[in-house]
Every structure is written in C-alpha cells, then in structure tokens.
Design a binder for these strands. Structure first.
Lengths: 189, 189
DNA sequence: ATAATACCATACGCTACAGTATGGAGTGGT
DNA sequence: ACCACTCCATACTGTAGCGTATGGTATTAT
C-alpha cells in the first residue's frame, strides 16, 4: 500500500498522474487504458466515466504536467532578479532528478501526434525565450544571446538523455550540482 | 517508382532499410511487420522467410545502422590527425542532416527493450571516448577533457532534438555549418 | 526436362487493446 | 425511505498486429 488512507473512488487526476508516470518512463505510445486500469486496481469502466477516450487522457495529462512545470519555473527561477543568478538557478534546476524533466525528454522523441509536436514547440520556444532574455539582461547582444541560449538549452536536453542512457536514471542531486557548476563556468562567462 | 529497375524479389537488407526508416521517424515501437510489408508491396509471407520474428528484424537493422555509422566516423573523423581539426570535423558532421543522427536521437528516448539500452550505452561511451581523446591530445588535462567531452556530446544530442522540435526536421547544411562554427568557438577554445 | 530451391501469397488462430452498452452498488440529499 | 447521482464491473463488438502452416510460382542447377 502506498497510501495510508484507502481511497473509495478515483478522480480524473489519479488517472492523469498514472498516465504521466507512464509517459515519463515509456512514452506516450505506452499509455494504454486497460493496463492503467489494472495498475489502479479498477476496470476500464472507471476510465470511460472520467474520460471520453484515450487521447482525452493524454491531452489532459499533458495539460496538467505543463501547468505544474510552469508553476515550478515561475516560483523558483523567474522570481530571481539578478540575470546571472537566474541562469545559474536554471542550470541547477535542469539537472535536478525530477519527473518533469523525464516527461519532457521522452516527449522530445515522440513525434507520433501533431498535438504533441505543437506542445513541444511551444514549450521549447517559451524556455528559449526566457534564457535569451536572461543573457540579454547580462549585457550580451541580441545575436549572441540567441545563439548562447540555444546552446545552453541543447546542453539541457542532451544532458537529460545522456543521464538516462549512461546511468539508467537522472543523476542524484550531488552529481547534478557539480555538473551545473561546470556548465555554468563554460556557458555563463 | 523510385527504382528504375523493378526488382524481382526483396532482400533482407531491403527490409532492414525500411525498418531503419521507420525507426528514424517513429521509433522502434512503430516497426510492425504487416505495415512494412504493405509499404514494400508484399505480404508478411515474405517477411517470415527473411526473418524469424519482429525482434530479429530490429536487431539486424540496428546492427546494420551501427556498422554504417562506425564506418562513416572512421572515414571522415578518425582519419584526421590534428585533434582540434578532428573535433571541428565532428561538430560539423554532428549537425549534418543525415539519417544516422535521426536514428540515434530516436533510440535515445526508447528504453522499451534491454537490447536497445545496451546498444545505446555502448555507442555513447564509444563516442565520448573519442571526444575525450581528442581533447586530451589538444593538451587539456584528464578531468577537463572528460567534463568538456560530456558537455560537447550533450550539445550534440540536444541539438538533434531541438532541430526536430523547432523545425520538424534536421536543419540544412548551411544552418548546420553556422551552428557548428558557434559551438566550436564556445567549446573548442 | 526435371528437380531443387528461393521467394512469396493466402488463410488461419491468437492476443491485446479501443470503445460501447448496460446494470449495479454505494452515497448524499430531501 | 426514497430518489438521483456517482463510480465502477461485466460483457460484449471490432480491429490490428504477431506468428504459423501450407501451397504456389518463378528461378536456378543439373
């Protein structure tokens, strides 16, 4: 039992969380109704009461993920006034072993659906814009800020995949800290 | 018709090429026998003559890809004596819009099978080793060479995903050249 | 010319999953 | 006490793909 209080019935969010967990580790294609139902200890009769179909679940799950991710960034990064410190905080957060990174990196290789491509493009452009903004505030010119933010973001994405490939999971906080320091030294001078 | 000479019968390599094409664009999970057969204008009776099962095709396809990739690197990169020029050549090749990169980046998010994880780890460590070697030959110490090669490789992987995400495909040669120059300036000083 | 072999079509059984239809148990409101 | 609504189980239909069995045709060898 992972829950002390045995819940009487499931909510839509319970299904979304389970779906996000699958997405993080096996991708969108692996999100299947019946296996999820088994995992949650119910049948798909429950599922089709909460959602209209499989894609509906995927959509709403990604929506939830996106909101949570946005909130995280707004609270821990965008509140920092000093642009250099803000970038450093971003590098550190990027290397933290949290689910949101796993989901993002998994989605990156999943071009199965137009919806996902669209979401990814939006998120990526959004984040690039933040980085570029910070570099500009540090005093760099437009062109350099653009190229450098693309480079920094590539490092972020690459690091996610590398970690999973080499270690099978995201590295722990200590390793992440060290790596963030090195990256900062190379990309924040 | 994409072939002038209409072939009388298919070879195992024809199936492998078709499979690699699917892997490059939709991932290993999307490799299915019957759809491939339809695409090749035959039925699966043909498939099961050439391969014992679906996984057999995947294995052999990846083996072919790996051999081709190895040959490419050996011929265009490892033959260069000067370490700095060698690294520059690697950066440039990394940004070229060729299928081998697509396959690699797609595999990176595909942890469905132990075999694939194993292959990926091997390839990644192999490439990291080459990079590290080049940095060392440039005169950097062991520790820096290791960190820097990891950084450079992260940039490579990240760039692949970014390109697909933002532009839907790998960028053309001209863009690739510019990007490689910038990366080289930042990571090769 | 005949036999062997390479290559493929067809037809089959099996499984996993999507989605629907319907009924039933529990719970809260009145 | 009764009703309505929430949540889920059960039982279906339909489809896509895996793998097998078997027979047929064209090519090659002898």
């Amino acid at each position: 039992m992972n829950e002390v209080v045995k819940k009487k019935s499931l909510t839509a969010e319970d299904w979304q969380d389970a779906a996000l967990n699958v997405i993080a580790h096996q991708g969108v294609a692996a999100v299947a109704v019946e296996p999820l139902a088994r995992e949650l200890g119910v049948t798909k009769g429950s599922f089709y009461w909460h959602f209209s179909n499989r894609m509906d679940l995927v959509k709403q799950s990604l929506k939830k993920w996106r909101l949570g991710d946005k909130k995280l960034v707004e609270e821990t990064i965008l509140t920092i006034k000093n642009p250099k410190k803000r970038l450093l905080a971003w590098f550190k957060l990027s290397a933290e072993p949290i689910q949101t990174h796993l989901i993002y990196s998994t989605l990156l290789a999943d071009r199965s659906h137009t919806l996902i491509s669209k979401i990814l493009k939006e998120i990526t452009l959004e984040r690039l814009s933040h980085l570029q903004q910070s570099y500009r505030e540090m005093g760099f010119d437009e062109k350099f800020a653009k190229a450098q933010s693309l480079l920094a973001y590539s490092v972020y994405v690459g690091f996610l995949h590398m970690s999973k490939t080499l270690y099978g999971s995201l590295p722990d906080s200590k390793q992440a800290e060290e790596y963030a320091q090195f990256v900062a030294k190379q990309l924040l001078s």
